[in-house]
Amino acid sequence: MEDTVMRATLVNAEKFVGVANGALKMAARDVRVFYGESEALHGVDLDIYENEVLAFIGPSGCGKSTFLRCLNRMNDTIDGCRVTGRIELDGEDIYDRSLDVVLLRARVGMVFQKPNPFPKSIYENIAYGPRLHGLASGRAELDDIVERSLQRAGLWEEVKDRLEQPGTGLSGGQQQRLCIARAIAVSPEVILMDEPCSALDPIATAKVEQLITELSETYTIVIVTHNMQQAARVSRRTAFFHLGNLVEVDDTTKIFTSPSDGRTEDYITGRFG
């Protein structure tokens, strides 16, 4: 089994290498997802490189979010969902028994479609992850993490005087940046974003997009988006999913100017979607 997968990695390697300027961070081979009996994802092979922004696009129900949730095993929380195939993070199989899902999620963070701050203070929202994982050894260090995370998410100036107020009291865009700050407070290596701007207005969206670009200097970012302009603006590479298949993955510019698959072209030119 392992051998076949490795061979597949070698054979297919060139097909997936886009602009491979970073080292290989995550690799998916023949990933299939089942909800009960029905197969929702039909064997996806995909490589993700360090410090890149990779966008997943495709019509709704195409499996892009499902695949994203495989990358930090969030699908485990759904009853009746089963994943086969192999996903590696730095060469380790993340579905291997020896790998702790807690550690995996600490390394591969996630931001969700709808801002979901906890009904706690802004400070507590950020401090939640570091506290759980024991990342800070004292109050001062925790304060430091909170401040730096908020700064990194560009929220510090807006909230530094009201850290004790509930996170749910912020505006939608602020809430989403709070959630991003919450994710980076854990110091993940990869951040998964599931349509992070779909619930936001254009101005808030612009802020979050700018943030994504900045964060990509430090983190590997995988973003699912409905919005092709967004994919074009923020990502270096784009993967197009359709009906549970990964149709193609390539440089974003290539995908949007001369895709190699007809379905991709049909989608980006608006024939369906």
Binding site: L103, R107, H133, Q151
Partner: peptide, 16 residues
């Protein structure tokens, strides 16, 4: 200002 505990430290702390 990047709040980046480096990966190996983070990993060690979480594992602990």
């Amino acid at each position: 200002s990047a709040p980046r505990t480096d990966p190996s430290t983070q990993r060690r702390l979480v594992e602990r």
